[in-house]
């Protein structure tokens, strides 16, 4: 009879405990709190309210405004980041002098902490002392300094620019890595068949990049959907709640208004939305096999 060896089970206990404590417990606890009316300072005042937190949130104007702003932020910033990232990746995949230097350079903005990036762009957009106004004014493109962060919709777009500048390089790095695995003879064959740049892009490059694209899009979309730090640094959700995204709204509800139950319900809603987005991506972009239509 073979002696059962439980040593392998022993070895996974530390990892299991860490995962249970850091992932499972907070998530389950958040979901539980979301069914309670819980305020930070009244521990005794924790009453079960069922779905009323959810009902209240879904009928709240401020939630839907934050929802729309988040969707806009996510779509525009991820789209721009993807397009810029893809083309810089293709560019950096060509053979030219200084390629190594430029490849290193593109990592820099991505490596800057978001807080630093936020402060940086806040000063660039500053209406009196900012370099953007200085540049445009000296080029004669504007005749009066523009208050970039002073109008709700414009401020939102300005924050998107700051976010794109930092995060498009994530796509560059991931896609560049994937591009290097595409055998050069596919392109040679396509060229022989008379395929131009766009033809090669859509029929060779993109299908072969699909797995890398899916992964990077899912990651960036869920990150963009949860955006918080750059908003907190640059606009604090203002002016007039024009840049208040969902995460900022959660932060306000939980830690400024101290309504933990409502904040937990909001977090749960956001988590569900992000899960749905990921599912849609994976369904529509992941296919078992990649065909090349040459």
């Amino acid at each position: 009879m073979r002696k059962t060896n439980y040593f392998h089970l022993l070895m996974i206990i530390p990892a299991t405990v860490v995962l249970l404590l850091t992932l499972f417990y907070p998530i389950v606890n958040t979901i539980i709190i979301s069914f309670f009316d819980k305020k930070l300072f009244y521990p005794s005042f924790s009453t079960f309210v069922g779905l009323s937190n959810y009902k209240e949130i879904l009928s709240n104007e401020e939630f839907w405004s934050a929802f729309k702003i988040t969707i806009y932020f996510t779509i525009v910033s991820v789209f721009l980041e993807f397009v810029i990232g893809l083309f810089t990746a293709i560019l950096l995949n060509q053979n030219f002098k200084l390629r190594g230097f430029l490849r290193t350079l593109v990592i820099l903005p991505w490596a800057i902490p978001t807080v630093v990036n936020g402060v940086l762009w806040q000063w660039i957009f500053d209406s009196n002392y900012g370099s953007l106004n200085g540049l445009l004014y000296q080029l004669g493109l504007i005749h009066n300094y523009v208050n970039w962060l002073g109008k709700p919709f414009m401020a939102l777009n300005m924050v998107i620019i700051a976010d794109v500048w930092k995060n498009c390089w994530f796509f560059t790095i991931v896609l560049l890595g994937a591009l290097q695995t595409i055998p050069k003879n596919y392109y040679d064959a396509a060229k022989v068949d008379g395929a131009g740049f766009w033809n090669r892009l859509f029929n060779v490059t993109l299908p072969l990049l699909r797995p890398a694209i899916v992964v990077s899009l899912v990651l960036r979309t869920s990150e963009a959907f949860k955006v918080f730090d750059i908003i907190y640094i640059m606009t604090k959700g203002g002016p007039a709640n024009g840049t208040q995204v969902l995460s900022y709204y959660v932060y306000h509800t939980s830690f400024e208004a101290m309504q933990l139950g409502k904040g937990a319900a909001l977090s749960t809603i956001i988590a569900i939305i992000i899960l749905l987005i990921a599912l849609v991506y994976i369904k529509s972009l992941m296919r078992e096999e990649v065909e090349i239509n040459a």
């Binding site: 002073g150 109008k151 709700p152 203002g238 002016p239 007039a240 709640n241 024009g242 400024e256 208004a257």
Partner: peptide
């Protein structure tokens, strides 16, 4: 007061940004 102040802040800002 905190909630009162926030309501007022948002609506004053809506007027200041001419919404």
């Amino acid at each position: 007061y905190q909630e009162f102040s926030r309501i007022l802040q948002i609506y004053i800002q809506k007027a200041l940004t001419r919404q």
